[in-house]
Design a protein around this nucleic acid. Sequence first.
DNA 1: GTCTATACGGTGATAGAC
DNA 2: GTCTATCACCGTATAGAC
Lengths: 192, 192
Amino acid sequence: MVMNNAREQLIETTAALVEAQGYHATGLSQILKESGTPKGSLYYYFPAGKEELAAEAIAHTAQLLVKRATEALAADDDPAAAIPEFIRTIAHYVEASDFAAGGPLITVALESVTCSERLNLACQDAYRRLQEVFAAKLQAGGYSATQATHLASFVTAAIEGGTLLSRTAHSCAVLRQIADDLGVFLHIMPKS
Amino acid sequence: MVMNNAREQLIETTAALVEAQGYHATGLSQILKESGTPKGSLYYYFPAGKEELAAEAIAHTAQLLVKRATEALAADDDPAAAIPEFIRTIAHYVEASDFAAGGPLITVALESVTCSERLNLACQDAYRRLQEVFAAKLQAGGYSATQATHLASFVTAAIEGGTLLSRTAHSCAVLRQIADDLGVFLHIMPKS
DNA sequence: GTCTATACGGTGATAGAC
DNA sequence: GTCTATCACCGTATAGAC
C-alpha cells in the first residue's frame, strides 16, 4: 500500500514522543515541530485529532514491537534462553535512550483507562499481540497452549514492570536481574 | 504532629487523582474543586506549585503503600504465601475502583523521568521503600540479604507490570495469575 | 487537496483584598 | 495568614486562503 510521507512522519514522531513523555504530556505543537509537518495537515489526515493520531501511533508501535520480538526470539530455539536474551536487548535500548524510552505502551495504557476508550482498545490490542508472540515461542518450546498463554502474561508483566523500575531508577540492573530470574523460572517450570 | 487540614486534604486529593489519571492529565482546577480548597491556599502551602504538591502526594502514597504492604505481609510467616495473598488484595482493590486505581506510582514514575527531577526522586524513594518491605519479609523467611533484595525487585516489577496489564485489560485475571506464579517461583527458589 | 492564520477554552501562576 | 480576582500562556481545534 502507498504510504503518505507526511502521515507516516506524523505517526512515527508521535509514537516516539509519547513513548518518552506520555500522552497528555505530549502537545500537538511539539509533534508538529519535531516532524516538520504543518498544523493543518494533521487534521486532514486525522480528522478526529490528537486521539486518532495517538491511536494510530499505538498501532504502529505494536507492529514494530511484534516484529522486533519475533526476530529476537528466533535467535534461540529454547524460549528459556531466547526470552531473557530479548530482555537484555530491551535493557540496552533503554540505556541507549538515557532512560527516556522503553515500554512504549506503559504510560498510554494507564492514561487511556480513564480518558479514552479508543486509546485503551489500541493498547489492549497491542499487548494481546505481543503476548501472542511470547505464547507462540513458548508453545514451540514444548509448553501446552494454555500454559504458554499463561506464562506469556507473566513474562509481559515482568518486562513492563522491569522497564518501569529501570527507567525510574536510571539503571537497568533490575531489568537484567529479571532476565536472569525469568530464565531460571522458565527452566524450572514443568511443561505439561 | 499537627497536620493542617487544607494541606492534608490537598495532598490526599492529588494522590488519588494522579493515581487514576497521571500527573499531566490532572489539572490544578480539578484538584481544587474535588478537595474543596480555594486556589490561593495551594500556593501558600506549596510555593513551588503543582510539582511540589505532586511530590508530597507521592511521598504520602509511599507512606500508605509501605503501611499496607507491611500489614498485609504480616498475615503469614511464609513470604511465599504472604506475597501472593497481598497481590490478591491489590487485585480486589483494582476491581473495586473499576480499574481506575492501583499502581499509584506507575504513571508518575514514567512521566517524571523526562519532566521533573523532583518527582523522579520522590518515585525512586517510594519504590525503594516498598522493595525494602518485601526484602525484609523475604529475609525473615530465610533468604540471604542479597537474595532478598534481588527477589524483592522481581516481585515489585511483577506487581507493577501485572497491575498495568490488569487495568488496561479491565480484568484482574493476569494479576491473580501472577500471584500464583510468584508463589510457585518463591517456593522453588533455593534459599542461599 | 494542502497548509497558514486564527479562535477559544483551560492551564499554571500571581498580585493584592481581607 | 488566608483566599478571591485576574493574568499571560499554551492546549486543541477550525475556518478559509492558496
